[in-house]
Design a protein around this nucleic acid. Structure first.
Length: 485
RNA sequence: GCCCUCAUCGUCUAGAGGCCUAGGACACAUCCCUUUCACGGAUGCGACGCGGGUUCGAAUCCCGCUGGGGGUACCA
């Protein structure tokens, strides 16, 4: 048996910034395609004339790329089944819809939005299921004539046959059965504007683009039933469906812009200095565990080991603390040159040119340990860049007023020219030697020095700090303290 | 309302009838390391929603209940 080449896709609609859920769905499709040496396609479902915006398209494409998700065909690079943008296929959808009308599988419906609202309201009042009453199936020629004369512009509805069970084997959820009666009556496939509706356009596109697998959020389950009906009407084979559980917040509610604001957008994490490797890793393992249960893996590794069989059926809760853990892991373990490069934009308020590239890398290496996101690097590294170190009143009035502290500082100041700059251990040893001389050690010795240099009693390794700051900067800091006005 | 779906520590999960007095990770607590914070290491806290079955034996299978979530548009 020859298996067709796997083709999976992500079909975002450019009605908002790249959402965490969209990113994860994209990731799963991408990983699945790569795992099976197939193609991954990106297609834009921009049939919502009201909410679609090109700015969102850019945001989505760049966000996906940033995460390491690359497509083989898409609106930006083309491909054998172009166009990859639904608004460029309007006529095509309409043609297909007309074919369905000719076959008696669809028809024009002249019901106005107001009439439909009234119908729904009535159904709501009587506590019955909300559905279109298929009235358009039985128009007399006179009625149609009248509606046309009134200037009503029809939609095209697809006939949803009643009393049938649509079922499919979902690659994640297993067997799913839905009765067509619960689908809401004959469905609109082309709006009165002439633009195809999502449920119709997806099927036409997935058929056109020869998609073999449709992996999407479980909020689409009912849509899948509707879409299967369309596949059948078109006489086309069904792809394999897989419905991925959704992502919740800590309150077990769907992640939504309304409730969570920017926190649902990939962009927000990008701006805050989260590593794409961390987001990818975190997103991937939210509802999927590799067979060997490893938790840290790269995109490339995930492409090797991804498996739909191991995708969980239940929703995952987005927990920023866990993301932070992944992020701090990558901040600590990615090559220092790369982290330094990424850190630059978070340090842009400082005059970075005063340090060489390798010195800068040392600084980043020193402070990266405690960071959960790069946005926190500026406060952590600030003292390296300013000769006027901010010192709290508590320290300047307390610790730094003590006699022993002043002694330590003036001793350090005096020995500046003998410090082995560039040698972290050597610098530390010099301080220790001064301590020995003064009979001071521990906090009494280190804290004053640390406070003078960093403005705090906690911070990176003292020897390294001294070594990187170098004679000029250390001198400036000490003198600023020793000659108060 | 109706339809679909889900159910293991606070969170992500392992678990596909005996290997489970339920394992790992995050978080949290304590301790160790350290001049400090962080890192790292150790220990601890901590879960199979409930009720019936089936079976010699159930977290695992079946049924019901409860609870959560999603859907129910001329949105996607």
């Amino acid at each position: 048996m020859t298996q067709a080449k796997v083709r999976a896709r992500i079909a975002p609609s450019p009605t908002g910034h790249l959402h965490l859920g969209t990113a994860r769905t994209a990731l799963y499709n991408f990983l699945f395609a790569r795992k099976h040496k197939g193609d991954f396609i990106l297609r834009l479902e921009d049939t919502d004339e009201v909410r679609s915006d090109d700015a969102y398209t850019d945001d989505i494409l760049s966000g996906l790329k940033w995460l390491g998700i690359n497509w083989d065909e898409g609106p930006d690079i083309g491909g054998p089944y172009a166009p990859y943008k639904q608004t460029e296929k309007t006529d095509h959808y309409e043609n297909v819809a007309h074919k369905l009308i000719e076959q008696g599988k669809a028809y024009f419906c002249y019901a106005t939005p107001e009439e439909l609202d009234a119908l729904r309201e009535e159904q709501r009042q009587s506590n019955s299921a909300s559905r279109y009453d298929n009235r358009g199936r039985h128009y007399t020629p006179e009625q149609v004539d009248k509606y046309v004369k009134e200037g009503r512009v029809p939609v095209i509805r697809f006939k949803v046959e009643d009393n049938r069970v649509v079922s499919w084997h979902d690659a994640i959820k297993g067997e799913i059965q839905i009765n067509t009666e619960d689908l809401g009556g004959d469905m609109v496939i082309v709006k009165s504007s002439g633009i195809a509706i999502y449920n119709f356009a997806v099927v036409v596109d997935d058929v056109d683009m020869k998609m073999t697998h449709v992996i999407r959020g479980e909020d689409h389950i009912h849509n899948t039933a509707k879409q299967i009906l369309i596949y059948e009407a078109l006489g086309e084979p069904l792809p394999q469906f897989a419905h991925v559980p959704l992502i919740f917040d800590l309150d077990r509610q769907k992640l939504s812009k309304r409730k969570h604001g920017e926190a649902v957008h990939i962009n927000k994490y990008r701006k805050d200095g989260y590593m794409p490797e961390a987001i990818m890793n975190y997103l991937a393992q939210m509802s999927w565990t590799p067979a060997d249960e490893r938790e840290i893996f790269t995109v490339a590794e995930a492409c090797e080991i991804f498996d739909l069989d191991r995708v969980s059926k239940s929703p995952a809760v987005f927990d920023i603390k866990r993301l932070d853990w992944f992020n701090s892991h990558y901040i600590k373990s990615l090559p220092i040159a790369l982290i330094t490069e990424r850190a630059r934009e978070f340090l842009k308020d400082f005059e970075l040119s005063q340090y060489s590239q390798s010195e800068l890398e040392h600084i980043v290496a020193l402070v990266r340990e405690g960071l959960s996101a790069l946005k926190d690097i500026a406060p952590a590294a600030a003292f390296f860049f300013s000769d006027k170190v901010q010192i709290s009143d508590e320290l300047s009035q307390g610790l730094l007023k003590q006699e022993s502290s002043l002694k330590v500082l003036s001793k350090v100041h005096a020995s500046l020219s003998q410090m082995p700059w560039g040698d972290a251990k050597g610098c530390k040893a010099s301080v220790d030697a001064i301590g020995k001389e003064l009979g001071l050690k521990g906090k009494d010795l280190y804290w004053p020095v640390r406070a003078a240099l960093c403005g705090a009693t906690s911070g990176p390794d003292l020897g390294s700090t001294l070594s990187i700051l170098g004679e000029r900067r250390v001198k400036a800091r000490l003198e600023a303290l020793m000659q108060p006005c």
